[in-house]
Design a binder for these strands. Sequence first.
DNA 1: CAGAATCCAGCACGATACTG
DNA 2: CAGTATCGTGCTGGATTCTG
Lengths: 111, 111
Amino acid sequence: MTDPIEVDENGKLKCSIEYTLNKVGGKWKLVILWHLAYDGKQRYNEMRRLLPGITHKMLSQQLKELEGEGLIVRKQYNEVPPKVEYSISEKGLTLKPLLEEMHRWGKEQWD
Amino acid sequence: MTDPIEVDENGKLKCSIEYTLNKVGGKWKLVILWHLAYDGKQRYNEMRRLLPGITHKMLSQQLKELEGEGLIVRKQYNEVPPKVEYSISEKGLTLKPLLEEMHRWGKEQWD
DNA sequence: CAGAATCCAGCACGATACTG
DNA sequence: CAGTATCGTGCTGGATTCTG
């Protein structure tokens, strides 16, 4: 079987599983992506309601990082009051199998 | 689509993705499981070699937690010098699809 | 060989107040 | 409404030494 640890162009060891963890690890990112993937686009405060317990700091930080990775898209409407919509990108959609497995396994192992 | 957030028997909100994250999240667990799933059983010091940079503390801690979850099996031979073998359990094998997706996505997104 | 025991640093994550 | 800006804090993870 393929080893997850490989050598990059600088000769430094890298691991594809670690790579994925770096992009979508942490407490919130996969849950955020799940909602955008399956519930469709959401406004900022809608996201907050979907993520019980998240703070402003974490939500805006995670959204910004995910946008930076190109996994989600931020669309701003110049209106008053302000309106912003977040949606999943094409690249983000490639995470669907992973999201589904995370969901399936958690559900299945539930006691 | 099924919402990942559900209500448990105590009426507390729970999320199956968070659940999975709690079991196999963090920096090392999925990589450890990957090796045990695809490289077969390993001794303690063999595991260390497979995980560049891991410390004694992290390795033994993660192994203990994974064993506590029933995801891996620790087999101790009463010999001198000591010999211990870690292997993946039946329950741990149910994570294979997840491991493969983590690996596949990381490999694919590699620049 | 396979850990356990300490001690410690950094940062992930959180609480709260403020703002265009 | 959709965020910043500060200010914490605890826990994850690391370095090192000791042991059966």
